[in-house]
Design a binder for these strands. Structure first.
Lengths: 115, 115
DNA sequence: CAACTATATTCGTCAAAACGAATATAGTCA
DNA sequence: TGACTATATTCGTTTTGACGAATATAGTTG
């Protein structure tokens, strides 16, 4: 079970918050979708995802070449609620709106076969 | 109005989270009470309070020699809810319990005359 | 006014963490 | 098998931010 300090460490970086806001809205996204949405280099995105995976904020599944990240399903209720409210708070910021817009317009998004 | 990035910066340090959790529970506390509760040197506590004051997470009033901090009353609803849930999440951690216990047992707490 | 108390700030140092570039790994498909 | 794709990791550097120690400020009280 994640503890509060690890959880808030995950929230302490803007790149990670951008990733989390997308994942709260979309339930599951692969690395290439996240890179495209944030318009950031893949190693940078992977590094931030790794931080959150290792601290238990995110969980992962593989499907072929693609790795899908989601908010960890065993997060305690208070943590879920914070992520949800974070979405509300960030919705007003242009940068977060751009992320969602790019994701929506991304061409050739990988197709989940057996989610 | 505070923006989400400034708000989450405030939450990114454990000392600041300890201060916030006390303030969420007690509505208004002076610097010496916070120093005593956290058992930390006054300049360290003041510096962290300043970070949160400058970003709009806390507001301040003076009463004689004492300066009372509180959660900023104009915080947006999502931010209040996050602070509230943070209290839930941190309640399980020993260090936060110790803070509240010391505060409760503090001798000679300053008396508010005209809150 | 001087002494005192509560709080704030400055400064130099140090450590954590984010970064870009390069490379490694792992799965797929011909 | 080798080429290719998606993702992960390593490494050296740089930036950010927390820190302790010292000092400044501001209000109170004699």
């Amino acid at each position: 079970m994640i503890n509060a300090n690890d959880f808030f460490d995950a929230l302490s970086d803007e790149t990670r918050r951008r990733l989390l806001v997308l994942l709260v809205g979309d339930d599951e996204l692969c690395v290439c979708e996240l890179c495209y949405a944030l318009d950031l280099p893949q190693p940078k995105v992977s590094r931030h995802l790794a931080v959150m995976r290792e601290s238990g904020v995110l969980s992962v599944r593989r499907e072929g070449l693609w790795i899908y990240y989601r908010i960890h399903p065993l997060l305690p209720a208070w943590a879920y609620r914070i992520l949800d409210q974070m979405g509300q708070g960030c919705a007003a910021l242009e940068i977060f709106q751009g992320d969602r817009k790019r994701l929506k317009e991304m061409p050739n998004r990988p197709v989940r076969c057996c989610a």
